[in-house]
Write a protein that binds this DNA or RNA. Structure first.
Length: 813
RNA sequence: GGCCCCAUAGGCUAGUGGUUAGACCGGCUCGUUUACACCGAGCAUGCGGCAGUUCGAUUCUGCCUGGGGCCACCA
């Protein structure tokens, strides 16, 4: 007696697949390559159910392609550089990056990853993702650093990167630069203050929520069509409290409806202020420091926090009679998602990728990509059309890929590393150049910024492809066939990868993109802050990886899927049913008897009497009519499932294959042949046996992309010795069997099922057992139609006799 | 403010210019124990609203309503 639970079965095959290299990419293969740009998940401790879902969905497609005969290149990577890792390490280790040396912190991050990464990757293995785990990268390893830095070098050569003193988003609380993804909207209470400016001694009232920015005021704007202020054009306005005058200018971005219709521009209160600064070439005044305190510019308010300064300035304005009105309002501001502090714009030297000039091309590139589903392209187009800034790629952080750059200590000229010295750490390494090409100085200072994490992850096609050393093979892999990902990062990952690939290689990185939806719980997006998260580890533990995948296959590509535990339970039911059906087909002694906790498969000894084990016949024996009709139905479902897969419509494929298995195969066909299996002649058994064998094998193959574990279990148990493959997952995708056809086949099969259903109905209405013996009467035309299957019909309905009458009648014996 | 997606039984969903609109979970009525009670058979319940196109609309178009999302703005 061997106790065999579902988790143990899955574990067993997972090990087997790795040991046998079932999913290994063979660079020497003659087959056509199908390559996937697998999303590298951010190492975050534990897999999210959304990951489980979207990686399963891409895996369905990949497994199908593999069975279709492609040499599949399916790498895996983890995205573990940058802020998310820093935060996780800070949280787990209870440290603050800024309280320790940079070196020490980086060391801590690396240690943490070494520990955590394998555990994290295991989650992906557990849901049966069929990656080649030997083609593995991390976005912080030296391989990735080299490629990321090469990307910078190449873009520099192509004059696509530049360094500029520019404002960027900054969190004064965390004292760090902040990326756009880390920003969220928050509604806050604020006050609209009507403040008095003076123009030639006359009062000009301007409304603002940020009076503390008065010292940074550089201009005053009104809308060109605003007649109230037209007369002020070209004049100067005196800023209250601060002894300075600023020009009054026209700009369409000023909204006549808002406040008093005239607005002060302070560098940098918000994005519009930055636009104005640029558009009108205004001077730059920084009233707030990186520490979040008022600068010298603020005079007597210097050193105060933003809040303190606001309070004090308002009091002073009041005292001097320069504050006319205060109105409490609620409005949305951008805040740092971590601490909820409103974002400031702080001017600093940053690196950018120049791409705003390419917007038209970007739209064309998107056009050349095949989107699944199509409508997801709108997100991309929308984003491109709305682009207003070049791509900021430098971050003032610690744990990331360093810029391969030094600066001349004397003249600040950048010195770029050379390709052969990559990967390079400018804080440890020296540039090859001995002297500054501009001023001849030989003293250099390293760049301490790191490349933004998207700068590296936008190189994933190269991060994986370059792990294969053979250049000829690389050409077969890239451009890649498929980029699967979720829709939330179209504007980041997909877009940036597209840009990089175009700038570096002049071509799209992939042919297709498959965009998956989100997992919701009771209709709402899952998120930690809402507390409505489901942990896949627990779900897998309880129901198995196959069951989770089965659930994930029920939603269409691109559509959100609602998580319901009972849907995962359905997956587990499928697994059990499958095993039991195989058990019947082969009449093996192995018997799965699930107990309450769904643990159990066990060997039992109930073998003896049950007919001969199914004998494998490669050649088709003489096929009886109902078996032939069943195989025709099988052919139909093979065709439709294949078509669905070709269209990336895995959910339809699963629906068809699963429905065929449960209804046609298990509930109907098995019942039809049961009597023959137990009591038939050799010929009758052989015919049924052949159809059962081929039917089950095709079902297993069609379901293999969805439930890889149980299909492998059954394949190994019963089929591999005949079929000769090491795994069902490198089997050939089924094709319709060659069998004779008659015009009336569909009609006969449908009639057969109809008569079965109606008879069962009569029995049910009479509250009799389905097995009760009857005398069945059928109209003449039905009898003629069913002529060749009457024997099976009799046995499946337990009819003593089938007679002719006007309509279907059931008489109980 | 711009754009995108969705709307089918109590819940979650499939699907179609003419169909008895199909599953699953749940409900109800039964049955079964020689593959399977995580089973089998049967029953009941459904196309958000208004207009248009059409011989015919749940399906196509427009608007409305409701839900979800992306982007922008937020003096």
């Amino acid at each position: 007696m061997v106790e065999l639970g579902i988790n143990a079965i899955e574990e067993k095959w997972r090990r087997y697949w790795e040991k046998e290299g079932i999913y290994s990419f063979n660079p020497k293969s003659k087959k056509k390559v199908y390559s996937i740009d697998t999303p590298p998940p951010t190492v975050s401790g534990e897999m999210h159910i959304g990951h489980a879902c979207s990686y399963s969905q891409q895996d369905f497609i990949v497994r199908y392609k593999r069975m279709k005969g492609f040499e599949v290149f399916y790498p895996f990577g983890t995205d573990d550089n940058g802020l998310p890792t820093e935060r996780l390490v800070e949280k787990r280790k209870g440290v603050k990056a800024r309280d320790m040396s940079r070196e020490k912190f980086i060391e801590l991050c690396m240690e943490f990853l070494k520990e955590e990464r394998p555990k994290y990757i295991q989650d992906w293995k557990n849901i049966g993702i069929s990656c080649d785990w030997n083609i593995l990268y991390s976005t912080i390893d030296s391989h990735s650093r080299r490629i990321s830095q090469w990307s910078f070098l190449d873009l520099h050569k192509k004059k696509r990167v530049y360094r500029k003193d520019a404002p960027s988003m900054w969190c004064p609380e965390c004292k760090t630069g902040v990326a756009q993804v880390e920003i969220k909207d928050k509604e806050v209470d604020s006050t609209f203050n009507d403040i008095v400016f003076k123009v030639e001694g006359k009062t000009l009232i301007i409304a603002t929520t940020r009076p503390e920015l008065l010292p940074a005021c550089v201009a005053v704007f009104y809308h060109p069509s605003d007649k109230r202020y037209k007369k002020l054009k070209g004049k100067m306005a005196k800023v209250p409290l601060f002894d300075m005058e600023v020009p009054i200018m026209e700009d369409e971005r000023a909204d006549p409806e808002k406040g008093t219709g005239i607005v002060m521009c302070c560098t940098f209160g918000d994005q519009t202020d930055m636009e104005w600064q640029k558009a009108h070439n205004l001077s730059i005044k920084m009233a707030i420091s990186e520490e979040g305190r008022m600068t010298e510019l603020a005079g007597k308010y210097k050193g105060m926090s933003i809040k303190e300064a606001r309070k004090n300035i308002i009091n002073d304005l009041k005292e001097e009679g320069l504050l006319i009105k205060q109105e409490p309002i609620k409005h949305f501001v951008n805040v740092h998602e971590r601490c909820g502090t409103p974002i400031e714009f702080i001017k600093s030297k940053q690196w950018f990728v120049k791409y705003l000039d390419l917007k038209k091309d970007m739209l064309k590139w998107g056009e050349e990509l095949e989107w699944h589903p199509k409508f997801m392209k709108h997100r991309y187009d929308n984003w491109v059309k709305g682009l207003q800034w070049d791509w900021l790629i430098s971050n003032q952080r610690y744990f990331g890929v360093p810029f391969p750059v030094w600066y001349c200590k004397k003249c600040d000229e950048p010195i770029i590393a050379e390709e052969k010295q990559l990967p390079v750490d400018p804080m440890k390494d020296k540039p090859f150049a001995k002297k500054c090409s501009k001023c001849g100085s030989s003293e250099f200072v390293p760049e301490t910024d790191v490349l933004n994490t998207w700068f590296t992850s936008s190189m994933t096609p190269q991060l994986s492809t370059y792990l294969i050393k053979d250049k000829e093979v690389q050409k077969k892999i890239f451009p890649m066939d498929l980029r699967p990902q979720a829709h939330d990062i179209i504007t980041f990952w997909l877009f940036n990868t597209m840009v990089k690939s175009r700038l570096h290689f002049g071509k799209n990185p992939w042919k297709h993109t498959a965009i998956s939806g989100f997992v919701t719980l009771e209709g709402e997006k899952m998120s930690k802050s809402k507390g409505n998260v489901v942990r896949p580890r627990e779900v897998i533990e309880k129901y198995g990886g196959d069951a989770v995948r089965y659930w994930a296959s029920s939603s269409k590509l691109g559509e959100d899927i609602n998580y319901q535990e009972k849907d995962v339970l359905s997956g587990k039911k499928f697994v059990v049913k499958m095993l039991n059906a195989a058990n019947f087909v082969f009449m093996t002694s192995r018997f799965l008897k699930p107990d309450g906790n769904l643990e159990g498969a066990q060997e039992s000894t109930k073998s003896d009497k049950i007919l001969d084990n199914l004998k494998y016949e490669k050649k088709m024996p003489k096929i009886l009519e109902s078996d032939r009709l069943f195989l025709k139905e099988l052919n139909k479902v093979i065709t439709s499932t294949t078509e669905a897969f070709e269209d990336f419509n895995y959910s339809k494929a699963k629906l068809e294959a699963d429905g065929f298995f449960w209804k046609t195969f298990a509930d109907n066909y098995l019942e039809i042949v049961k009597y023959r299996i137990y009591n038939g002649t050799t010929e009758e058994k052989a015919s049924a046996g052949y159809a059962l064998y081929q039917g089950l094998l095709a079902i297993l193959k069609m379901m293999a992309p969805f439930t890889p574990y149980i299909t492998e279990e059954i394949y190994q148990q019963h089929f591999s010795k005949n079929e000769g493959k090491k795994s069902i997952h490198i089997e050939e995708w089924p094709i319709p069997l060659k069998i004779k056809e008659n015009k009336t086949d569909d009609e006969v099969w449908d009639k057969l099922i109809e008569v079965m259903t109606l008879t069962r109905q009569k029995k049910s209405e009479a509250k009799k057992s389905v097995k009760v013996e009857i005398i069945l009467s059928l109209p003449k035309k039905d009898l003629e139609l069913l002529d060749k299957v009457l024997g099976d019909l009799k046995s499946v309905l337990n009819a003593r006799e089938i007679r002719e009458s006007k309509e279907l009648e059931v008489e109980f014996v």
